[in-house]
Each structure stands twice: as C-alpha cells, then as structure tokens.
C-alpha cells in the first residue's frame, strides 16, 4: 500500500507541476490575455462596441463600414447570451476602466429564452478571471458550478486548464464541414482572415437546413433580469445603447412573438434605438445556418447597421 501511494503521489505531483508550468507559466492566462487585447483595442480607437451572440459576431463586420465615420469593434461571440454580455461589459467598465460611448447589443428571442444565457458549449467565459467581482462569482456559481467558481477563484491556473485552446480547437472542428457547400469554403477563409486577427478562430457550423427546434416561447426571468441590468449599467455609465435584431431564416415563427412584442414596447418606452432586421434577407443560399448569414450577406447587413448608426449620430 505504501509503495502504491508513494508512486501514485509522486507521479500525480509531477503531473500537476508539469501542467502548471506548461499551461500557466509558459502562457500566463490566455483568457486574461484575450481580454487585454479587447481592452487595448477599445481604449485605442473605438466609439461603438458591438456585443451579442454569434449573430452579432457574424452579421456586423466593422471593416466593411466607413471607418472614418464609425469606429466599431465587435466582441459578439458564439453563445454569449445576456448574462455573459452584462458581465463582460461590467468587467470592462469597472475593472478595466474602458471608455466607451456607444454599445450596440444584438438581441432576439434566443437571447431571452435561456437557451444561450450561460450554457452554450465550448464558449469563452472571459470573466473567469474576474471572480472577485460578486456579480461574476454569483453568475458563475449559478450557471456553471460553485465548485468550479471556488477552484478558479483560488487557483486561477485552473482557468487555463478548463478553457485550454487545444480543447476548444478540437471541439470546434465541425468547421471542417464547411466544404459541404462551396461558397462556405471561400467565406470561411475570408472570415478566418478577418476574425483570426482578433479571436484566433471562427465558430462556424454551416447547416442552413437544420431547423431551429426546442426553443420555448417564453422570456426567461433570468435573461430579463440581466437585460435590465445591462440597460441600467449603460445608463449609469452614460453609454448610448442601440439594439439590433439580426435576420434569420423562417423568421415568422410563432415563438418569437412574445419577444417582439416585449422589445418593441420596451425600446419605445425607454427611447432606445432599435434596428429590427428579423425578416429582411430571406435568401436561403446566403445562410450558413438558420440563424447565421454567410459572408456576402453579412456585408449587406453591416451596411444596414452602418446607416442606422449614422442616422442617430447625426
């Protein structure tokens, strides 16, 4: 028994030390590094910060806009729902003290029905290194796991183990199915070139034929709460908020009605500019999935967003 324990503990100890050196010392917290990039970029030259899920990420391409008039930075990301967006903005403003005057938030029924909130797989929890913030900590305990929250809070090195790029690279490999449709290959290469600058990868999963299913016709209390907190955070920091709804295929779905009624009433009541492109661009061949436009369509959508922002700028 003694020999078993001795050898096991020795090997376990060596494994831990080597992992620590590999994942922490050699690459001191890539999560933090990625966020630092954002902070530097925003501080340097950004007036408009785009936030939201993959629909924000793929619909709005800042480099297509007239950059002399609009300085836009898009940090929309696959699976980022309202809780993540709120926490990310809060951390950027309060911990990193970024100066931002305008925020464009992409919203739709998927952001409000809990499906994306904090549960999307393989996504970046940028705020995993900000667990000292009680809002972040509480959200982490609620949506991830209190043990993980405690572990990462005490041992930040674990964030690098859990969110290692290798894992995500492997898990995001469905991208290889991009060559199912010819134009996706070209778009993919372009997008990689574009997104690669800021994010290193692009989580495309092309299948416009897979229908959206299992979404509930509801506005989740959690999402509503985080949305209100997001609006309040913008108000407190004197940030002008814009809401944007990306186009999706088969847009006349009954389960989006509750959201549409709510958001129209809310934006009118609070005087928040809202660009609703829900049913624009119903061109099947121009989508990668039911909810994600291909590159060429994203150019057109970006131009619409540009016009919308310029209108309010004047």
């Amino acid at each position: 028994m003694k020999q078993f324990l001795k050898k096991s503990l020795l090997f376990g100890g060596f494994l831990l030390v080597s992992l620590y050196l590999m994942l922490f010392k050699l690459d001191p917290s890539w999560v933090e590094g990625r966020k630092q990039q954002y902070v530097e970029q925003i501080d340097r030259n950004v007036d408009y910060l785009v936030m939201g899920s993959s629909r924000a990420e793929h619909c709005i391409k800042p480099n297509v806009m007239d950059t002399t008039k609009l300085k836009v930075f898009n940090i929309g990301e696959d699976g980022h729902g309202l809780p993540s967006n709120y926490l990310l903005l809060k951390v950027l403003l309060e911990k990193y003290k970024v100066q931002i005057n305008h925020v464009v938030l992409q919203v739709d029924e998927f952001s409000f029905n809990g499906s994306n909130g904090f549960s999307s797989k393989f996504r970046d929890d940028y705020f995993v290194t900000d667990l000292q913030d009680s809002a972040v900590y509480n959200a982490f305990c609620r949506y991830r796991n209190p043990y993980i929250a405690e572990t990462v809070k005490d041992f930040p090195f674990m964030a690098n183990v859990m969110y290692n790029d290798f894992y995500k690279f492997v898990r995001r490999y469905p991208l290889v199915f991009k060559n199912r449709i010819k134009f996706l290959e070209r778009s993919y290469q372009k997008n990689i070139a574009f997104f690669g600058i800021d994010k290193g990868y692009s989580p495309f999963f092309p299948d416009p034929n897979v229908k959206i299913e299992n979404y509930r016709d509801t506005i989740e209390a959690d999402d509503l709460d985080y949305f209100e907190r997001f609006v309040d955070l913008c108000n407190r920091n004197h940030i002008k908020l814009y809401l944007f709804r990306a186009p999706i295929l088969e847009c006349e779905r009954s389960d989006s009605r509750e959201f549409d009624e709510y958001i129209h009433a809310f934006t009118q009541k609070n005087n928040i500019p809202y660009l609703d492109l829900k049913c624009d661009y119903q061109i099947h061949s121009q989508y990668w999935t039911q909810t994600h436009p291909a590159d060429s369509l994203a150019n057109l959508i970006t131009k619409d967003v540009e016009k919308f922002l310029l209108k309010y700028k004047q």
Binding site: Y173, V176, F177, R180, I181, D207, V210
Partner: peptide
C-alpha cells in the same frame, strides 16, 4: 468524445455531405 464531434453532424445532415465524408 472528439470523434463524436465529427460523427454527430454527419449523421444529422448526411443528405448534404459527399460520399467520402
């Protein structure tokens, strides 16, 4: 678990894939 990532979409949307895939 890694291969599952490649298998799932192929069985879900096989009608869009080429034979070799």
């Amino acid at each position: 678990d890694t291969l599952a990532v490649a298998v799932a979409p192929a069985f879900r949307g096989h009608e869009h894939l080429n034979g070799s895939s």
